[in-house]
Amino acid sequence: MGETKVQEQLGAADVRTWIGAATLVDPAVPMRRGSLMIAETRIRGMLKWWRSVLAFGLGNPVLYLMSVGIGIGSLVNKHMGANGLDHVPYLTFLAPALLVTAAIQGAMDEVTFPTLQGFNWDRSFYSMNATAISPRQIVNGVMLAALARCIVQVALYEAALIAFGAISISSVPALTIGAIFAGFSFASVMFALSARIKDDDGVFAIVGRFIITPMFMFSGTYYPLASLPIYLQWIGWISPVWHATQIGRALSYGMPISPEMFLLHIGFLSVLAVVGMSLTYPPFKKRLAN
């Protein structure tokens, strides 16, 4: 009986060629590049929402810059004249803080809800882990994709800031690095928290209202931290927004800063990132094994 005849008998719906995983799949490939594969899936998921990402990414800064930047800025500039905050126009002073906040928001969105989705809503983390991909690679892949989103968010914000004349093109690389760093370190802490949530009981709404908003308001965003009474300044000291904003200000318009303070800012964000990621891996490993 010829092969065609056999296939005809088996019917069109059969799996015709079967090489077999032993020959077809080299485990070394996913073991090496698994994180990138997970990031690819996450980015595919994000692209389903590209219109919202774009509208939010551009709409938010435009509205913000018009109301706070120009509105309040004209007031600040008028009263303080050439000696304005740090001797720069108010928008230039504000820009690094706005970028940091946008970065934090973008990165956070992509580690919090996707983690609930992966563990609880569609359990897709379990399907990833049923392949050669390890829990650690899933964590890294989700974070990589979150940083990709973060870069897009920051780039859109920068485009708006350039259009408003708030920053110069030459300051973009420095501002981007500062903002992404902030996004990474804060998102890693949120990631560690998300990995421990069994049900979405509104915890992110609480985090948004009681952590993100105060952090944004009391982190030397609109005015130098030193202008706050001493009993409120601690919020800035434990806030990644303040540390990253200071880095951004120093790098973008040369805000005076001592080398020790500069290193302290970088150190704080690094510690946060390392602690956050280290606290994210164990719950992933534990939950995926059950």
């Binding site: 077809l24 490939v29 595919r44 359990r123 049923a130 050669a132």
Partner: peptide, 26 residues
């Protein structure tokens, strides 16, 4: 592996679910 509870990626299309999964095997 076909788990007891379906764990398809609900945001992705049918063919994309197969594509990303195949990518996990390199």
């Amino acid at each position: 592996v076909v788990p007891q509870q379906d764990n398809l990626d609900r945001e992705l299309k049918v063919w994309e679910n197969l594509m990303v999964y195949g990518r996990y095997f390199g």
